[in-house]
Design a protein around this nucleic acid. Structure first.
Length: 674
DNA sequence: GAGCACTGC
């Protein structure tokens, strides 16, 4: 089928084209032109669900909500726009508020964790997908909204998937036509419109899920990017990237280079090689400045990639997926795509709990397109794919949705509170039965559900805490052990998005030395507590600058402390609600803290074997203590751990020693062993 | 002897 792309200027800020049919094999969209804004509003007015397919830079996320507002389609309620990321939600809201000439929180607002700006006047609200899923718990039909726009739906985050499934159910209730007796359904006066926004390639799946909803196409404003594939497949992607970079450097006009690599290890070694070769360049060639970018790296270091290079210098940025969606680096004209990324995948196991794997794998087509697009943000660019065109054509269209590759423990607990079962939910992709069974077993071990899979009173309490069920269980248990204050300190740090202990490979010895100050013989949980206590002392007596300097000197991430403080405040409120005194402290008594954690982490435990290895108490897996743990190289009879991660071996992270006798007192353990 | 990226009550 020939590619037939008909477009007409819309007069608005973007062009709108209606997709008539999708030819999957050719992967071309046959497009029928519409006239922009009015046509879009008419389509949304006429249909319960609209799928909006759009290239990046089309402005759909900022413009469409405003069009809907001005059209009066949302007269009965707010317009929600959901985002997978907090920064996106807040920055989009600020931009749209400015376009509406208003202050943020007035007509246009946002809601993300720890930060909400909205008022009774708010009509357009940007929120994270997690936030709206949470709202579902208190208002099961989301009655405050008349239009819900699900943005970045193609990312298929766990929460977006749960939202999409629930929205289908909500529409059944709210969009019911008046019944034959003329007795109108109370809800039919407040129907719900759904707009699903997605990047190209996978729109058809959303359409099928929503009873063949119409797909509309929004044309983007990206600059053209010339794409080169390699003629033959490359065995060594790092070496291929090195050669490609110097080819660009010697043959191509000025412009910075962005290299996508799977992880920190590859980044650091390739950076060294490039620096080494760059020194040997003839003096008439421009110089090379390399920067690296990955999440575990200090912010100040990551930020160097944003600085313009000195005159007559080409900047080369080596980055992980962090530069694919979350961060946009200015000045990039060339992209080198190694085809690789690392992805976390949860491996459900019926005995001993599941564990995460973190392995290098091939990227997907949408990822490859996203990467090449990074060369066309400011002008035309070039992308060098270190793989053949065949390889590209054979890539999966998009990644596996998160719901198929993460632990379901938390989601199942939350759904149980809503009276829903994950198995019965109409999801776009259903997790396999092993994954569900493994989560149910964990919940049973925690005492959150009974033998009939019914929520227990303490399970209902756990669900109220903004924590993984394991840590919520530890908080609930801390009441009995009179150490809630310490457990809150501990779990708030463990639940933070960033790690507390920074690792800088070049300063390994200095890092180890600084860490020794907080080191606690019983393991990582008390080591974290020691760091929290030390920071609290500094924070009480020193100013902001001194605090920051103290953290830097001890290789501690201050952002983690600050985030943990916010989380702790939320936990204190929840504790009071369920009758747990958050201020009760065990003082210097260490044992209660370990035992409380032991209740949450009973399934994450292992006994020392005669041969010196650790074997799971509730499974057969041999686990190794992670080298970053204070208990590495130490042998204790029994350990609990925060999680297992398989990279080269199965490593237990966040490890503490626990008396072996503790397990004998646990009823679930006795039941389990029997 | 080692760390893809996000997010939430």
């Amino acid at each position: 089928m020939p590619k037939r792309r008909v477009s007409r200027s819309s007069g608005g800020t973007f062009q709108l084209l209606k997709v008539h049919s999708v030819d999957r094999n050719a992967q071309l969209y046959r497009l029928i032109p519409c006239s922009g804004r009015d046509a879009l509003i008419e389509e949304i007015r006429a249909n319960d669900v609209t799928i909006l397919l759009g290239e990046t830079g089309s402005g759909k996320t900022t413009q469409v909500p405003q069009y809907i507002l001005e059209s009066g389609l949302a007269r009965n309620g707010m317009i929600a726009v959901t985002q997978p990321r907090k920064v996106a939600a807040t920055s989009l809201a600020h931009r749209v508020a400015a376009e509406q000439n208003g202050t943020i929180g007035d007509l246009v607002g946002y809601a993300v964790r720890f930060d909400e700006k909205s008022s009774p006047q708010t009509r357009i609200k940007y929120l994270t997908d997690g936030m709206i899923v949470r709202e579902l718990m208190s208002d099961s039909t989301l009655s405050n909204y008349s239009v819900i726009i699900v943005d970045e739906a193609h990312e298929r985050t766990l929460r977006t998937d749960l939202l999409i499934a629930n929205l289908k159910e909500i529409q059944k209730v709210r969009n019911q036509p008046q019944d034959a007796k003329g007795k109108g359904n109370a809800n039919s006066t407040n129907p719900l419109k759904i707009v699903v926004m997605s990047a190209t390639l996978d729109a058809e799946k959303f359409s099928k899920f929503y009873h063949n909803a119409k797909i509309l196409y929004v044309k983007g404003r990206q600059h053209p990017v010339k794409i080169y594939h390699s003629a033959e497949s490359q065995l060594d992607y790092a070496d291929a990237a090195l050669r490609t970079f110097f080819q660009i450097h010697t043959d191509r006009p000025p412009g910075d280079v962005l290299i996508f690599l799977p992880g920190q290890e590859d980044i650091e070694s390739l950076q060294k090689s490039i620096d080494l070769f760059a020194k040997q360049l003839p003096s008439d060639k421009p110089a090379v400045l390399t920067c690296s970018m990955f999440a575990a790296q200090e912010h100040s270091q990551n930020n160097k990639a944003f600085n313009p290079p000195p005159p007559n210098t080409r900047k080369c940025i080596l980055a992980t997926n962090i530069a694919e969606t979350s961060i946009t680096i200015p000045g990039i004209k060339y992209v080198i795509d190694t085809r690789k990324c690392k992805e976390k995948q949860y491996l459900a196991r019926l005995s001993g709990g599941g564990f995460d794997t973190l392995l290098t794998r091939d990227i997907t087509k949408s990822s490859a397109m996203q990467r090449s697009g990074r060369a066309g943000r400011e002008g035309s660019g070039v992308c060098f794919r270190l793989y053949t065109e065949d390889a590209f054509n054979n890539m999966a269209i998009s990644g596996e949705p998160e719901i198929l590759r993460c632990s379901l423990t938390s989601s199942i607990l939350n759904l149980k509170c809503l009276g829903q079962n994950l198995e019965e939910l109409d999801l776009m992709d259903k997790p396999d039965s092993d994954s569900i069974a493994s989560a149910l077993k964990t919940l049973w071990l925690l005492g959150a559900i009974d033998n009939n899979q019914k929520l227990t009173p303490s399970g209902r309490q756990m669900a109220l805490f903004p924590l993984e069920p394991q840590y919520a269980c530890a908080v609930v248990a801390s009441k009995e052990y009179a150490c809630t204050s310490e457990i809150l300190d501990s779990v708030s740090v463990l639940s933070s998005s960033s790690k507390l202990f920074l690792d800088i490979s070049e300063q390994r010895d200095a890092v180890a030395e600084a860490r020794r100050k907080f080191r606690h013989g019983s393991g990582d949980h008390h080591t974290v507590l020691n760091a929290v206590r030390a920071y609290r002392e500094i924070a009480a007596s020193e100013n902001k600058h001194a605090r920051r300097e103290w953290c830097r000197k001890h290789f501690l991430n201050e952002r983690t402390f600050l985030e943990a403080r916010d989380i702790r405040e939320q936990l204190v409120v929840t504790c009071r609600r369920v009758g747990i005194d958050p201020s009760v402290s065990a003082k210097d008594n260490e044992d209660p803290v370990i035992r409380s954690m032991g209740h949450g982490l009973a399934g994450n435990s292992a006994f020392l074997q005669p041969d010196g290895t650790y074997k799971q108490t509730m499974g057969q897996t041999i686990v190794k203590v992670h080298p970053g743990s204070t208990l590495c190289d130490k042998k204790v009879p029994a350990i609990i751990y925060d999680d297992l991660m398989y990279t080269n071996q199965i490593y237990a992270r966040g490890v503490s020693a626990i008396p072996k006798s503790f397990f004998m007192s646990l009823s679930v353990f006795k039941q389990r062993k029997a």
